[in-house]
């Protein structure tokens, strides 16, 4: 009896938590299709007017283009650097290794405002503030730890004899990296790419500090909000949310792909990649 009550309470609590997290997003989604200009109940009827309005606004289109232009190179760079860092941590022992790993994983724990300010003051000194480059560099700093963590988890599943077996079959260390280590990590590389793209696409605070006139989508949304409360924002929010969740979902699918097939030989499957992404959503 107590057990059943406990379980019931557990479900209720979980449900409440999800409601708490998802209600604002759901509200945004619902009102983005509401005919009324003001987000209030009862709903006035269905419309796609706000979407139409959004995606014909040159400023929004430009912001979207810029976000994509930034997030793809960010994802590429973060994945490459993340792999290098993860492999370095996996393969080599050196003085100060734990400090190295700590510094690599530090950025997500720094408050966004501090990070944004720091980036702004640094990048303005090297005359990059306000450039698209500034957003790109800042986003690589923020996204890299996610990529590193995901790839490092995958490397932890690799039998250490695998590399030795490759050397033993006369593959040089470079060939081993290319023909053994990279193929072994392939799925986590794809997952890291998608998730770092999502991180960059969503990131607001630091971009707001360093982007200047080169607004990304989240920054554009804030500028909108400062001027007026328009249902257009709900439409943008929904679009951004959908694309991000899509990237994360594919990323998770990749990082967990073939789980059943590998399970027997590989030991524990890696934790869902999505769990690593936190604190980066649009704060509308």
């Amino acid at each position: 009896m107590m057990l059943r009550l406990g379980r019931w309470f557990g479900w209720a609590y979980t449900g409440y938590t999800f409601l708490f997290i998802l209600a604002p997003i759901a509200a945004s989604l619902v009102f983005s299709f509401n005919a009324d200009r003001f987000p209030s109940l009862p709903l006035k009827g269905f419309t796609t007017e706000w979407y139409g309005g959004t995606f014909t606004d040159p400023l929004v289109i430009e912001a979207f283009q810029r976000s994509v232009m930034v997030s793809i190179p960010v994802a590429l760079l973060s994945t490459i650097l993340g792999f290098c860092a993860a492999y370095c941590d996996f393969r080599f022992d050196f003085r100060g290794k734990s400090l190295f790993s700590l510094l690599m994983l530090l950025p997500p724990t720094i408050p966004a405002v501090i990070m944004g300010l720091g980036m702004l003051s640094y990048l303005s000194r090297i005359s990059l503030a306000g450039e698209v480059w500034a957003v790109l560099i800042s986003h690589v700093v923020i996204a890299l730890p996610f990529a590193m963590a995901m790839i490092r988890l995958r490397l932890a599943q690799m039998d250490s004899a695998l590399e030795e077996a490759s050397w033993n079959l006369q593959a040089s260390p470079a060939q081993t990296l290319w023909y053994v280590v990279l193929p072994f990590c392939k799925q986590s590389l794809v997952a890291a790419f998608l998730i770092t793209a999502a991180v960059s696409f969503d990131e607001f605070a630091v971009a707001w500090f360093v982007s200047g006139l080169n607004e990304t989508v989240p920054v554009r949304v804030l500028v909108f909000l400062q001027g007026q409360v328009s249902p257009v924002i709900n439409a943008i929010g929904t679009a951004v949310f959908t694309s991000s969740i899509f990237l994360v979902a594919i990323g998770m699918a990749f990082s967990g792909m073939g789980k059943a097939k590998r399970a027997a030989a590989d030991g524990p499957a890696q934790p869902a990649a999505g769990a690593l992404v936190s604190n980066n959503g649009l704060s509308l």
Binding site: D159, A161, A165, S166, V180, P183, K186, R262
Partner: peptide, 10 residues
Amino acid sequence: WQSLALFPFL
């Protein structure tokens, strides 16, 4: 190898 160390992706 004792663990065989076959390449799982090949």
